[in-house]
Amino acid sequence: MLALVMTYVSLGAACGSSAPASVDGLRRVVGTDLVGARGATQADQRKIDRTVVGLCAGGVWTNAECLRHGEGQ
């Protein structure tokens, strides 16, 4: 899973993603997958991971923070 997250992060960085300038921009980066996720199922974990990919690709989280997300998996 970490490899998948890092692949998306590196692809996002290569595309020149920049931090959002508005709440609407942030919503597009973060998405709505996390709404209702509790982390209790594999489906919940995928929702969390998709949210993390958006945060990492959008530059909201640092590279170190993105790497830390995958440490528990």
Rank of each mutant, 00 (worst) to 15 (best):
Met1Ser: 03
Met1Trp: 04
Val5Thr: 14
Val5Asn: 09
Val5Ala: 11
Met6Ser: 02
Thr7Val: 08
Tyr8Glu: 12
Ser10Asp: 15
Ser10Gly: 12
Leu11Asp: 12
Gly12His: 13
Ala13His: 15
Ala14Tyr: 04
Cys15His: 04
Cys15Ile: 13
Gly16Phe: 06
Ser17Trp: 10
Ser17Gly: 03
Ser18Pro: 04
Ala19Pro: 12
Ala19Asp: 12
Ala19Glu: 05
Pro20His: 14
Pro20Glu: 08
Pro20Tyr: 13
Ala21Trp: 11
Ala21Phe: 13
Ala21Ile: 15
Ala21Arg: 12
Ser22Gln: 13
Ser22Lys: 14
Val23Asn: 09
Asp24Glu: 06
Asp24Arg: 13
Asp24Gly: 05
Gly25Trp: 11
Gly25Asn: 09
Val29Leu: 09
Val30Arg: 08
Val30Asn: 02
Gly31Thr: 07
Asp33Pro: 04
Leu34Arg: 07
Leu34Met: 13
Leu34Gln: 05
Val35Tyr: 03
Gly36Asp: 00
Gly36Ile: 01
Ala37His: 08
Ala37Asn: 02
Ala37Tyr: 14
Arg38Phe: 09
Arg38Cys: 14
Gly39Ala: 00
Gly39Tyr: 02
Ala40Glu: 05
Thr41Leu: 00
Thr41Gly: 00
Gln42Phe: 10
Ala43Tyr: 06
Gln45Lys: 06
Gln45Met: 11
Arg46Lys: 07
Arg46Val: 09
Arg46His: 05
Arg46Trp: 08
Thr51Tyr: 01
Thr51Phe: 00
Val52Cys: 03
Val52Met: 09
Val53Lys: 06
Val53His: 06
Cys56Lys: 09
Ala57Arg: 14
Gly58Phe: 06
Gly58Glu: 13
Val60Leu: 11
Val60Gly: 08
Thr62Asn: 00
Thr62Tyr: 01
Thr62Gly: 04
Asn63Pro: 14
Asn63Ser: 08
Ala64Trp: 01
Ala64Met: 01
Ala64Thr: 04
Cys66Ile: 07
Cys66Glu: 02
Cys66Ser: 14
Cys66Asp: 06
Leu67Lys: 15
Arg68Gln: 03
Arg68Val: 06
Gly70Arg: 00
Gly70Cys: 02
Glu71Leu: 11
Gly72Phe: 07
Gly72Ala: 11
Gly72Val: 13
Gln73Asp: 15
Gln73Leu: 08
